[in-house]
């Protein structure tokens, strides 16, 4: 038998928050300890400090071939956009009266997001098909197309979080916890 308070708590989500501290019985604990292997397989998110970036490195020079072969069809050879997003240029257009281009170079606050996103979702037609080296290479090439790094700068777990993106300081955290 469930305690009455558990069932009462089930009436509405807000009621539940209040009720949760006063549960007559605890909810069951049915989670299984997560194997380390499972966590390693799925933990792919990279925050701005670069925690979790894998070994490997590449330059934009090495990235050009990856980009042409795996990305250009949808984003254009120079990242100018095709069927999908423009990835380069647009710096200085955020307040332009006529046209604004929000791109990796003109808009994104962190370079780590580029590695994270390309590794998790790109190329659209074959996610998870690039090696970590190839993801570093494509990342470096997109940063180079945006004139944020040089063609032979090495991008790896140490250098990527240190890349200062042009629009970094323009983001304001609007969330005020209640």
């Amino acid at each position: 038998m469930f305690g009455r308070k558990v069932l009462l708590g089930g009436m509405t989500a807000t009621a539940l928050v209040a009720a949760s501290t006063a549960l007559a019985v605890d909810p069951p604990k049915l989670g299984q300890p997560a194997p380390e292997m499972l966590i390693r397989l799925f933990d792919i998110s990279i925050p701005p400090d670069g925690t979790g970036l894998p070994p490997g490195q590449a330059t934009a020079k090495q990235g050009e071939a990856v980009f042409i072969a795996r990305c250009a069809a949808c984003h254009g050879e120079k990242g100018e956009g095709a069927t999908n997003d423009r990835l380069a240029s647009g710096v200085g257009t955020l307040q332009d009266e006529i046209q604004t281009f929000k791109t990796v170079g003109s808009y994104w606050p962190y370079a780590t997001t580029l590695f994270d996103y390309v590794r998790r979702a790109m190329p659209y037609n074959a996610p998870l098909s690039l090696t970590d080296e190839e993801v570093y290479a494509a990342t470096a090439y997109v940063l180079f197309l945006n004139r944020i790094i040089g063609e032979t700068d090495v991008i790896n777990a140490q250098s990527l979080p240190a890349v200062k993106m042009p629009n970094r300081d323009a983001f304001i955290n609007a969330y005020a916890p209640r």
């Binding site: 998110s45 307040q95 929000k102 606050p109 780590t112 304001i172 955290n173 609007a174």
Partner: peptide, 30 residues
């Protein structure tokens, strides 16, 4: 994944942020 700060994914930086007239962007307007 329980974290200390936001991860700043593509869909909370490139997208779903509010570009204001002064060129600043409001992030995490939930």
């Amino acid at each position: 994944k329980v974290t200390e700060g936001p991860t700043h994914t593509k869909d909370e930086t490139s997208k779903y942020t509010e570009l204001m007239p002064d060129g600043k962007s409001m992030q995490f307007t939930f």
